[in-house]
Simulated scan of single mutants.
Amino acid sequence: MSDDREGASADEAAGASEELTHTTEDGDVQMVDVGAKERTARRAVARGEIRLDESTVEAIRADEIGKGDVLTTARIGAVQAVKHTWETIPMCHQIPITNVDTDFDVRADRVVLDVAVETTGKTGCEMEALEGVTTGLNVVWDMVKAAEKDAEGQYPGTAIEGVEVVSKEKRALD
């Protein structure tokens, strides 16, 4: 995109040195061609949290949720989501996942989930880490929803928040 093109937006002008890689010149959506890129070792970590009633958190700690072990089920869901990201994010490549780590921090009124994904591919793995976090937290919600509902069947205090990529790394393969 040229910043001297008639009708160019301020954003286009500011980012003129960076081409949009997911669109053609005509504006059609396309997958980025990574065929010529070198394989590298990559790692991305994403984090998010689910706010819960303190009594629900205590039930998770005591393994007293009727549906079963909340964190084990959420861990499985997170890993499955990482492995299937390319099927749910339209322009994501299927990449070789070499490792997935999940870390739950159960606090008084929330559960924080970090998902670290590693690959030896031609493109990053931050989308996989984000998918792991969001699915893992959705599984927590699904497992505890009976405990979280109010008298009207709503979830006034339950919320998934702060989903973000906290780090990403790239290094040459040995």
Rank of each mutant, 00 (worst) to 15 (best):
residue 4 D to Y: 01
residue 6 E to W: 09
residue 7 G to E: 00
residue 8 A to F: 04
residue 8 A to T: 06
residue 11 D to C: 07
residue 12 E to D: 06
residue 14 A to E: 04
residue 17 S to V: 14
residue 17 S to D: 12
residue 17 S to K: 14
residue 18 E to H: 11
residue 20 L to W: 01
residue 24 T to K: 09
residue 25 E to I: 05
residue 26 D to P: 00
residue 26 D to S: 13
residue 27 G to I: 05
residue 27 G to L: 00
residue 27 G to A: 07
residue 27 G to W: 03
residue 28 D to Y: 03
residue 29 V to Y: 07
residue 29 V to R: 12
residue 30 Q to F: 05
residue 30 Q to V: 06
residue 31 M to I: 15
residue 31 M to K: 11
residue 31 M to Y: 00
residue 32 V to G: 08
residue 32 V to A: 12
residue 33 D to K: 01
residue 35 G to A: 07
residue 37 K to E: 12
residue 41 A to M: 12
residue 42 R to W: 09
residue 42 R to P: 02
residue 42 R to F: 10
residue 43 R to I: 06
residue 44 A to Q: 01
residue 46 A to Q: 02
residue 48 G to C: 01
residue 48 G to R: 03
residue 48 G to I: 04
residue 49 E to N: 03
residue 50 I to S: 00
residue 51 R to D: 03
residue 51 R to I: 04
residue 53 D to C: 05
residue 53 D to F: 03
residue 55 S to E: 11
residue 55 S to F: 08
residue 57 V to Q: 06
residue 58 E to W: 01
residue 60 I to D: 07
residue 60 I to W: 07
residue 61 R to N: 10
residue 61 R to M: 08
residue 63 D to T: 05
residue 63 D to E: 11
residue 63 D to W: 04
residue 66 G to W: 02
residue 68 G to Q: 00
residue 71 L to W: 02
residue 72 T to I: 06
residue 73 T to C: 07
residue 75 R to I: 00
residue 76 I to L: 15
residue 77 G to W: 02
residue 78 A to H: 10
residue 79 V to M: 14
residue 79 V to R: 14
residue 80 Q to P: 10
residue 83 K to S: 10
residue 84 H to G: 12
residue 86 W to A: 13
residue 87 E to R: 13
residue 87 E to Y: 04
residue 87 E to H: 07
residue 88 T to I: 15
residue 88 T to A: 11
residue 89 I to G: 09
residue 91 M to A: 14
residue 91 M to C: 13
residue 93 H to R: 06
residue 94 Q to A: 15
residue 94 Q to S: 14
residue 96 P to Y: 13
residue 98 T to Y: 08
residue 99 N to C: 09
residue 100 V to W: 11
residue 100 V to Q: 11
residue 100 V to I: 13
residue 101 D to P: 08
residue 101 D to H: 13
residue 101 D to N: 13
residue 102 T to P: 11
residue 103 D to T: 09
residue 103 D to M: 05
residue 104 F to W: 13
residue 105 D to M: 02
residue 106 V to R: 12
residue 108 A to T: 14
residue 108 A to M: 09
residue 109 D to A: 15
residue 109 D to P: 12
residue 112 V to H: 06
residue 113 L to F: 12
residue 114 D to P: 06
residue 116 A to F: 01
residue 117 V to W: 12
residue 117 V to Y: 10
residue 119 T to S: 11
residue 120 T to F: 04
residue 120 T to H: 15
residue 123 T to W: 07
residue 124 G to T: 07
residue 125 C to E: 09
residue 126 E to K: 01
residue 126 E to R: 02
residue 126 E to Q: 10
residue 128 E to S: 01
residue 129 A to N: 06
